[in-house]
């Protein structure tokens, strides 16, 4: 398995309750996995643990056969080779689009950087916006820059923390379809956190439904939302977990 999470437990220092408890999950290479859950279900904490921004209390996380966190191991986030798109994008406001995108390409030569910049800029359809600052872009454009920045260093795993929550409904629909296309084109394994069932359904190869830090359902969108799932009319679909989420 490409991502292997075993018996993972975590709680924040000032809290008594666990965000995640004895959590297990495996993800295959190239798959898009969606973690679906209400706020407070532990989905963002799970993402931060995989990224190395939090330290687990118990359990282990391995990515591509490399142990990232375990009883005596903790690989710092900068050493994990994992990309992440944040909820509000976290684009560096003092850097232009091109500098934001090449930010993670430290050891690359100038020529390689330029080449990679052109590749990802084309992939996310942002040609001509390289010299702009983030505040000069619309919400959707900022989201694409965040995606390009995360993809540029060719991460082995890409994490998304509710990246559509700041977009209006029309844009959300358009971008998530484009996102699936881009992710499948690059073949990068992705974990996508959301509270929106439509997002989960449209993007995922595998859906994990989370509540109070525990998995309550797991399967393909068809498994979760029913065999008669009609992706062209998602709103009409009655997912089997609706009452649980």
């Amino acid at each position: 398995m490409f991502v292997n999470i075993k018996d993972l437990s975590f709680k924040y220092p000032n809290s008594t309750a666990h965000c995640l408890e004895s959590f297990n999950l495996t993800i295959q290479k190239g798959d898009i996995t969606t973690i679906l859950g209400e706020s407070g279900s532990g989905k963002s904490s799970l993402l931060r643990l995989i990224a190395g921004l939090e330290m687990p209390e118990q359990g282990s996380i391995s990515v591509d056969d490399q142990l990232m966190a375990g009883p005596s191991t903790f690989v710092q986030p900068e050493k994990r080779g994992i990309g992440m798109v944040f909820q509000d994008y976290a684009l560096f406001p003092h850097l232009k689009v091109e500098d934001n995108i090449t930010f993670g390409l430290h050891k690359w030569s100038r020529k390689e950087k330029k080449q990679r910049l052109n590749e990802v800029i084309e992939l996310v359809n942002l040609k001509g916006y390289e010299k702009r600052y983030p505040y000069e872009l619309s919400g959707g454009q900022q989201q694409r820059v965040a995606l390009a920045r995360a993809l540029a260093p060719k991460p082995k795993l890409l994490l998304f923390d509710e990246p559509f929550s700041n977009l209006d409904a029309d844009l959300q629909l358009k971008i998530r379809e484009e996102l699936r296309r881009i992710l499948k084109a690059t073949g990068v394994t992705s974990i996508f956190v959301t509270h929106d069932q439509d997002d989960a359904q449209a993007l995922a190869d595998q859906i994990v439904v989370l509540r109070d830090g525990k998995i309550i359902d797991l399967g393909t969108p068809r498994d979760i939302f029913g065999t008669d799932c009609d992706f062209s009319d998602r709103i009409a679909v009655k997912p089997r977990v609706l009452s649980k989420v």
């Binding site: 990224a51 190395g52 921004l53 710092q76 986030p77 900068e78 994990r80 994992i82 990309g83 992440m84 944040f86 509000d88 976290a90 560096f92 406001p93 003092h94 930010f103 993670g104 430290h106 920045r149 260093p153």
Partner: peptide, 25 residues
């Protein structure tokens, strides 16, 4: 902490993130 987190995930340690991002902001 989101800019520092973003910078660290993009391969910079705490010190590099501080000088490249935090201090400028």
């Amino acid at each position: 902490t989101q800019f520092t987190d973003a910078s660290r995930i993009l391969g910079n340690n705490v010190t590099k993130s501080f000088f490249k991002v935090d201090v400028k902001l």
